[in-house]
């Protein structure tokens, strides 16, 4: 099965995935220990973990037989890039409006 890569906004739009990130804020956890906190199956939890991994919110480290999930900054940085883009966008547009209005004076 190929999984669609979701962007950062979609990755954290899902309540279960937000819950996973919130749990990982406190400490890194294995997929099994994460799954214990949910009613859904372990494969379902694993799928959410994969979405978060693909969007850059977590990294996975194999220690022995266990796979540990650790929070990663990258996913959050992408959200920040979005806001920076539109911050610049508005500033440029408003300057254009200023120029336009001053020409008409």
């Amino acid at each position: 099965m190929t999984m669609q890569t979701l962007d950062s906004f979609q990755a954290i739009a899902d309540p279960s995935r937000r819950q996973i990130l919130n749990m990982l804020l406190k400490k890194s956890m294995t997929i099994n220990s994460l799954a214990e906190n949910f009613d859904m199956s372990r494969p379902a939890v694993s799928k959410h973990v994969k979405v978060l991994y693909n969007a850059g919110f977590i990294s996975i480290q194999e220690i022995g037989r266990e796979r540990h999930c650790i929070l990663r900054q990258k996913g959050f940085n992408e959200l920040q890039e979005w806001i920076n883009y539109f911050d610049n966008f508005w500033n440029t547009k408003l300057k254009k409006l200023e120029k336009l209005l001053n020409e008409k004076k």
Partner: peptide, 18 residues
């Protein structure tokens, strides 16, 4: 101009905690 709501409250809480 205020362009807001880009981050949901949950996201903000998480971001800050992180």
């Amino acid at each position: 101009l205020k362009h807001t709501g880009i981050y949901s409250t949950e996201t903000l809480v998480m971001y800050d905690a992180m």
